[in-house]
Amino acid sequence: LTARLRTQVRRKRYNDQLRASVTQTIEMAVTDGLTGLHNRRYLDSHLETLFDRAVARRRPLSVMITDLDRFKSINDAHGHDGGDDVLREFARRLRKNVRGIDLACRFGGEEFVVVMPDTEGAVAEKVAERIRAEIAQVPFAIGADGKTIEVTVSVGVSSVLKGTDTVASLMKRADLALYEAKSGGRNRVVAKAA
């Protein structure tokens, strides 16, 4: 009886560890390790669903693409550790300024995407402006010595259009708006209606 009990306890521990390992692997597959936000793979698989749901229910949906201004110069001046500190802090501030139902993802490098279900374009633009202002107003701490640097962000916003809109065109409009924000002097929000 004791031998069987030990075997069953050992088997249960092994199964628990296996379950935890699988859960951790799945989490790592959809989460950006540096920022803790969802990654691009997760965005690619869920944006289509959110888009289709919004269109089917005739509900608004907005997308915001953010890009940290002159991020390469941050990495050059403060090393990749300093750049990583900035990315982590930006992700924290981004999470703080969006709702729980919003999908915040690291798109790649210093670009982040937020998908906002049930959000009209004008509201999404206000949220983007609030995020932009907070990033610009409060310096970012880098390193253990408490040094701070100024960081700004450019943001492009687009919303689902009535009719024959697609996920690709929604993202393209947001990307064009971001490009316009960057070429217009950075540290600004541009919303593309069409």
Rank of each mutant, 00 (worst) to 15 (best):
R57Y: 01
L178H: 02
M64D: 00
G185A: 03
H80W: 12
A77H: 14
D76K: 06
G121R: 15
T166M: 06
E120M: 06
G83Q: 05
C105W: 02
M64Q: 05
R40G: 14
E129L: 04
I135Q: 03
R92I: 00
R186G: 00
F71L: 07
N15M: 13
V113S: 03
E111N: 08
L43H: 05
T7G: 00
D32R: 12
L170K: 04
G143D: 10
D118V: 11
A191V: 12
A181R: 01
Q137V: 05
A128R: 09
D175C: 04
F107C: 02
V55W: 00
R10H: 09
A20P: 12
Q137H: 10
A29K: 11
G109W: 06
L1I: 04
D52K: 14
G83Y: 04
F107T: 01
I26E: 08
D84G: 12
D16F: 08
L176H: 07
R188A: 15
M28N: 15
Q8V: 09
V123W: 03
V155Q: 00
D175N: 03
A133Y: 04
D175E: 08
I131T: 01
K182R: 14
S62K: 11
S159N: 12
K192I: 02
T7K: 10
T25E: 09
R70P: 03
L18Q: 07
A194G: 15
A56D: 06
G163C: 11
D69M: 11
M116Q: 14
D16E: 13
D16P: 08
L103T: 12
R173P: 00
L34W: 05
K182C: 03
A122Q: 14
F107V: 03
R13N: 11
I131M: 07
V22N: 14
S158P: 00
I131V: 13
E110H: 01
R70V: 01
N15S: 03
S45Y: 00
Q24I: 00
